[in-house]
Design a protein around this nucleic acid. Structure first.
Length: 688
DNA sequence: TGTATCACG
DNA sequence: ACGTACGTGATACAT
């Protein structure tokens, strides 16, 4: 058994502390090697022996990832390239030969030196690289300032053309930001792309947008330049334009060299995982769409929000006056410690839940005290109103770009462990909708032109459909195939009544159960959410699994797979590693089991949405439509369009999304349109 | 900087 | 006898 031999060879020389079992998994599941071995307090081990065994096992690329020494102190292993890469400052006079070299290479790595954020940044220089020891820095004289460094942008025209040449591939540490920065300078980056962060994310989704330095350490590149050493941090941060050309060369040229150097190792790892297609055909096309969405932004009615803010200020003040009167004194309602003291000590209310540090005052705890004291409902209202005011009503208008009157979010593609996108600065994926005040905030998202409309397309019940597909459960699949109300179907089964006898309350409870399944439910969690006893909750779960026995079998098989492989996968083969799945700590292990259950469901839904985005964007391009994709909110896409194109957009989005993938159950997309993100009227429902 | 809370899917 | 739902990001407060 070759694996046994590897284990023996390694553990004979390594102090592993009860890790021999995991080590087998690690060797099977290549990415953990560096990380996990490194965390095992290596004393010494026989690198030669391990390397030859890995060769024998047909995993030669792993050899480069074996820890190179027993050293715990130096980040620089002896056989790692430690000399500074040879960096050149280039001038337009050298351009012809440089362009020829890069063209001949077929692809190269690009880094951008710019003052300010990617989208609005002012270009200071470009770094190009083809490997650890070959990089160039092109200083660009700013048109706006009288800075004498570098040549004016016009003189770099051959470079602009090279960047726009589709037959030459372009690689970057963060390609989306590079695209946006270059677009701001009038450059259309073309050519097959590669992104180090995305590649590392597909190799291991725990990586969460690592720094270039971390990437280069993990993927055996040269040490990355220390950004802070050049540009400082915090309020002392300097702009790249304040660097000398030599400093900029060392920083940006060194970064590009680093990114270029690790590409081969990342590609080899993706090839081993069979994930090249995920990068090339899924994530990189999505990256381009996200760049367009970020650059375009979404229009916000800031005046509307400012008007709402003024009324909320009054409302909050009134609530505070009344709460202080009821408390008999003033206090800070935003301070959980003051609040706990007031409610549980002074007013004698019974605390129900605990936090790590004390007695909880969260909405659920307060809700259970609603009838106990008149101050409680006021507090709940104060919480809600201040939350919405500070997070959305007051924050969003400040983020409207003066140039276009629109808000530009960042869509993060390498953050969520499941493969979902996230949105930040501002987060436009958590705009309120559940309360009336929340919906007023949502109504301030409007089309870019007054005569245009918003169109929303959302997958109906996508995660439950994915569950039906992955589990092959007959009953669940049949319910979707027939177009039944699945929560009502669940209620009918769990409560043993006929479908038309299901009460609204029974359906609500069944819906909670269905969501619980997606999260890896427990009777405790279910009882807490439904406000029922754990015995009743257990009974619900028993009846659920008796009905949906395919789901039960599937959930157990996922747990087993996770234990055996150390990872779980989505429908497209995206992985999530779960290092704690075999933990001896029950709590830790069960947390991993819930992640194991949820990830293939949430992650497959994310995969499908990404396919839907690509297909829809492609169809919009091909049709010459004026409509534009604005936002993605996990199962929903939001567009803006001239009204005469609403129908064709709805058709394209419906087809693009519903036919993104073929499951054993139909995919259903609901389309709506309207003057803002709140007031959307149904257009049609697409089934595929 | 960490904790609690709460906005969304 | 335990004692938690999955995935995110922003804000206010306490330290």
């Amino acid at each position: 058994m070759p694996l046994g031999r590897v284990r023996t060879a390694l553990s004979a020389n390594v102090e592993l502390a009860r890790l021999s079992r995991e080590l087998v998994t690690i060797v099977q599941d290549v990415p953990g090697v560096t990380l996990d071995l490194a965390s095992c307090r290596l004393r010494e081990y026989d690198r030669e022996a391990a390397a030859s065994l890995l060769e024998e096992l047909g995993m030669p690329s792993l050899v480069t990832r074996l820890p190179t020494s027993t050293a715990t102190e130096s980040p620089l292993a002896p056989d790692r390239p430690s000399a500074a890469p040879s960096l050149m400052v280039t001038s337009p006079a050298d351009l012809a030969s440089l362009v020829a070299v890069l063209q001949e290479r077929g692809s190269f790595t690009v880094g951008v030196a710019a003052d300010g954020p990617a989208r609005k940044g002012h270009l200071v220089g470009l770094a190009l690289a083809t490997g650890a020891d070959q990089s160039w820095y092109c200083p660009i004289a700013s048109g706006a300032s009288d800075d004498a460094q570098g040549a004016p942008w016009e003189e770099w025209e051959p470079l602009r053309q090279l960047l726009a040449t589709a037959t030459v591939g372009k690689s970057s540490y963060q390609l989306k930001e590079t695209i946006l920065a270059l677009r701001g300078a009038g450059v259309d980056l073309e050519g097959e792309g590669f992104d180090c962060v995305l590649a590392a994310y597909l190799a291991d989704s725990r990586s969460r947008t690592p720094t270039l330095a971390a990437l280069s350490r993990e993927w055996e590149g040269p040490p990355a330049p220390d950004r802070e050493a050049y540009l400082g941090k915090g309020i002392a941060t300097r702009q790249p334009s304040s660097l000398t050309t030599e400093e900029a060369r060392d920083l940006f040229g060194g970064e590009a060299a680093c990114a270029a150097a690790i590409r081969g190792n990342l590609e080899r790892r993706l090839a081993e995982l069979g994930a090249e297609g995920l990068l090339r055909d899924l994530e990189l096309p999505v990256l381009e769409i996200l760049a367009d969405m970020e650059a375009l932004g979404v229009r916000l009615d800031a005046e509307q929000l400012r008007a709402i803010s003024a009324t909320l200020t009054v409302q909050i003040a009134e609530l505070e006056v009344e709460m202080f009167r009821l408390a008999g004194r003033a206090f800070s309602p935003g301070s959980t410690s003051q609040l706990a003291a007031l409610l549980y000590d002074e007013l004698g209310l019974k605390s129900s839940r605990r936090t790590k540090t004390g007695r909880s005052t969260d909405a659920q705890a307060l809700e259970s005290l609603r009838e106990e004291h008149p101050i409680v409902p006021l507090l709940l209202e104060w919480r809600q109103v201040t939350k919405l005011k500070s997070t959305y009503v007051d924050a969003l208008p400040e983020l409207v770009d003066g140039d276009d009157g629109r808000v530009h979010t960042n869509f993060n593609q390498a953050v969520a462990a499941t493969g979902r996108l996230s949105s930040s600065d501002p987060n436009l994926q958590n705009i309120p909708i559940r309360t009336e005040l929340g919906r007023r905030i949502r109504a301030s998202f409007i089309p870019g032109r007054n005569d245009w409309v918003l169109v929303s397309a959302d997958y109906s019940q996508i995660e439950l459909r994915v569950l039906a597909h992955l589990s092959g459960d007959q009953r669940l699949a049949t319910a979707f195939a027939k177009g039944d109300d699945v929560h009502a179907d669940t209620a009918a089964q769990v409560f043993a009544v006929s479908q038309d006898q299901v009460s609204a309350e029974q359906r609500r409870m069944a819906k909670v159960v269905n969501f619980g399944i997606l999260y890896g439910l427990s009777s405790y969690g279910l009882s807490r959410d439904l406000g029922i006893g754990t015995d009743v909750a257990e009974d619900f779960i028993r009846r659920y699994f008796a009905t949906y026995d395919g789901v039960q079998g599937y959930l157990e098989s996922v747990r087993e797979e996770a234990r055996r492989q150390g990872y779980v996968s989505t429908i497209l083969g995206r992985r999530r590693y779960l290092t704690d799945i075999n933990s001896s700590n029950r709590q830790v292990r069960e947390a991993s089991e819930r992640m194991a259950i949820n990830m293939p469901i949430q992650g497959s839904a994310a995969d499908i949405m990404k396919l839907g985005m690509i297909r829809t964007a492609q169809a919009l391009r091909a049709s010459g439509s004026a409509a534009r994709m604005l936002l993605q909110v996990h199962d929903e896409l939001v567009f803006e369009t001239p009204p005469e194109e609403v129908e064709s957009l709805a058709e394209l989005a419906a087809e693009g999304m519903a036919a993104a993938i073929e499951l054993v159950v139909p995919l259903v997309v609901d389309l709506k349109s309207g003057p803002n993100w709140r007031d959307l009227s149904p257009l049609r429902r697409a089934v595929a």
